[in-house]
Amino acid sequence: MTKPDTGIATSPARPGVAVSIGRILRQREASVALMIIAVVIFLSFANEYFLTPRNILNVGRQASVVAIVALGQALVIIARGLDLSVGSVLGLSAVVSAFVAQATGNQVLALGAGLGTGIVVGLVNGLLFTRLNINPFIATLGTLSVARGLALLITGGIPIPYAGWAQWLGAGKIVEVPVSLILMLLLALAFHIFATHTRIGRNIYAIGDSPKAARLAGINVEGTRLLVFVLCGLLAGLGGIILAGNLASANPDLGRGYELDVIAAVILGGTALSGGRGTIYGVVLGALLMALLSNAFVLLGISAHWQVVTKGLVIILAVGIDGFRRGREE
């Protein structure tokens, strides 16, 4: 049936040191990595501006918010869940954070309120899923609407100006490198270690692989799933603060449709929507590819409408290649 080396079983059990090229190519992350290389090669010939440090860092900054939110989403999907509410949480957290900053002038409180908002929505999502057994697709579709509505109610539909720490997170730089990019890389490293080397991380993979088997093996399935939803909410909240800070304004419409970009990045990065499989570096690559594509359209001066079409095609292509390859192996 399955051959000994499909690259599928490697996420929980780490590959050895001597990794052959062939083995790398069989990884699920390979298709997105190859696409990134192809786009980079093409753009470096097509546009002289592309390879400038300024542009590369800009791409990194663009990728960072999608990647940060996708880190949480990836854990949720690996545990056989789905969080559609992240776009709305992004907007609500930004609005709450800006509101608190405006009302109190206290930056710590503002940041805490934004992140806390994410945690609360994540907790609600997790409880709806684990305690009331509502399908996560439906539960988070509900909170998607509720969170967006709350953001509109708080602001009356009018953007709140947002300066202070959020602006540093969203637009600041440390030696020319965007703060949000540094934050994203640090978080990605932390989540990679969390997912692969801690007991909870390992349990997340086990739950996604077979919830029944995981439960019978003594894993606290409900508690673990609750935790990943809370983490996902927290990161969406952080994403909202960064995005609002970058624009110096918290728009209640901020992050509308963002959930699709985030889920696309996760899936592009080789995470299986059916759970149990996926890597953090794959997710970062997925987000990077999406940012590269937007950059390409700007540099080449092609209509942004084509960008929307292409984004969809790339997702279908990446997942299609993977499905085709696995279909042949089985």
């Binding site: 929980p12 059990a13 086990a206 692989d209 077979s210 088997a213 019978l216 093996a217």
Partner: peptide, 21 residues
């Protein structure tokens, strides 16, 4: 098949999953 093994995990991960605590 459905209640025992973790199908995409390695032999080692399947053996040690309840040992992790």
């Amino acid at each position: 098949k459905i209640q025992g093994i973790l199908p995409t995990h390695s032999v080692q991960s399947n053996i040690t999953i309840a040992r992790l605590p």
